[in-house]
Design a protein around this nucleic acid. Structure first.
Lengths: 225, 225
DNA sequence: AAACGATCTTCAGGTTGGCTTTAGGTGGCG
DNA sequence: CGCCACCTAAAGCCAACCTGAAGATCGTTT
């Protein structure tokens, strides 16, 4: 049971190096030297993980990534970003990548991250959730109301995510607890209320909306309207 | 086991193109060139997925979609929305479509999305109940009379739900008690009357209706008329 | 190591709104 | 006419909920 890897990288020297290394580690590696070939191969075959350079001839890494996700392909993707910067990371994850690595990278780090990615598996998950004009990006701890970016803490995000996965439906406090906290959380359920309060202050109040609704005795509901 | 597709599209050139492409991919494609034929074929045959253009002669895509859903047909539907601003995606999904694609679309994308739709088997049949123009959504603890949303408390909802599950039938007070309250409720059975009263004030009175009928000595009945 | 900032969690006071009971009223039915 | 089932407005009670603030925890910086 080999791990099948697709490597899309135009620098032939680097591509060969990585391929050699990974092959030695027991990976089955295919290489594509430009974006369009890479996209085609990714669609044609079933890989366990895809390594994508960002800057590629004919079709860049971001585009490949979004196109795959759009096509319902949720193979784990690692992006190799040329420039080191926050902007690149954000863009990579925005486009549906699962992890990224800034060039130049150490081979050992690549290997470790790849293994982590494969282990995590490519569970099917949407690139982003949308509830009305609220978009939630599960890859990063961020969300946007229209064009306005909203910073969320990890827990706030977890709660919002739990609600957004079932828009318009009532999600009970205990469901939120089970999802955003450990399964067997022993603490005060009031904590959910605290986070609901914080979320409202961020996603509703500044916009004069009330999309996060309390359903007394039942739970909370996130509405599109 | 072919995948059976119904394509409802009046632009003959486009229809033939798509049909050709999909046939080549192993789909069994039927084409209808106007809305009424499309609806008829959708009802007559059992398709795995239906592709609906929005703007169609004789009966538009939205109408076909709602009519099918009304008739209890939950075949996955993909809507093709012309991007002229009159119709938008949200409307497509509101009408019960499972996915939409804005024209002009790439054939590859259409193919991928269709496959995803078929794989998922479409939206789960909503569990909402309908009694005449009254719809009850247990997942969201909401109910509507026509387009008007009605706010209900959990107990009110529980009672209404108990009635709506058996539309037109008499449901006894003790059945309602057993269902909406704990099995062994020790309180005053008059409470049911109180809630019936509250419900009437919300779902009948404002609409000049009397759908929630008392059957003296037997219980209550929720009527479609 | 110490200090710091951010986040998480707990706590407590205040408020609200739904649940239930009560009680007087209505109307069907013998 | 009187009984009984049902209707419904009103009010008290209590649990659920909101929220500001303080304490606890964790990771990062100095």
């Amino acid at each position: 049971m080999d791990v099948r890897v697709l490597l899309v990288e135009d620098e032939k020297r680097l591509a060969d190096l990585v391929k050699g290394g990974l092959t030695g580690e027991g990976f089955a590696v295919d290489v594509a030297y430009d974006g369009r070939d890479g996209l085609w191969m990714a669609k044609e075959n079933d890989y366990d993980v895809i390594v994508l350079d960002v800057m590629l001839p004919r079709l860049n890494g971001y585009a490949i990534c979004s196109k795959l996700r759009e096509a319902g392909n949720w193979t784990p993707i690692m992006m190799l970003t040329a420039k080191d910067g926050v902007y690149d990371e954000a863009e990579a994850l925005d486009n549906g990548a699962d992890d990224y690595l800034a060039k130049p990278f150490s081979y050992v780090v690549l290997l470790a991250r790849l293994r982590a990615l494969v282990r995590r598996g490519g569970k099917e998950r949407p690139v982003s959730l949308t509830v009305g004009d609220l978009t939630i990006d599960p890859a990063g701890l961020r969300c946007r109301r229209g064009e306005t970016e909203i910073a969320l803490t990890p827990k706030e995000f977890a709660v919002l995510h739990g609600l957004a996965r079932r828009p318009g439906e009532v999600v009970s406090k205990s469901e939120l607890l089970a999802q955003a906290w450990d399964f067997s959380y022993e603490g005060d359920p009031n904590i959910v209320e605290v986070y609901i309060s914080a979320l409202r202050r961020k996603i509703d109040l500044p916009f004069g909306r009330t999309t996060l609704v309390t359903v007394r005795g039942a739970g909370y509901r996130l509405e599109a309207a």
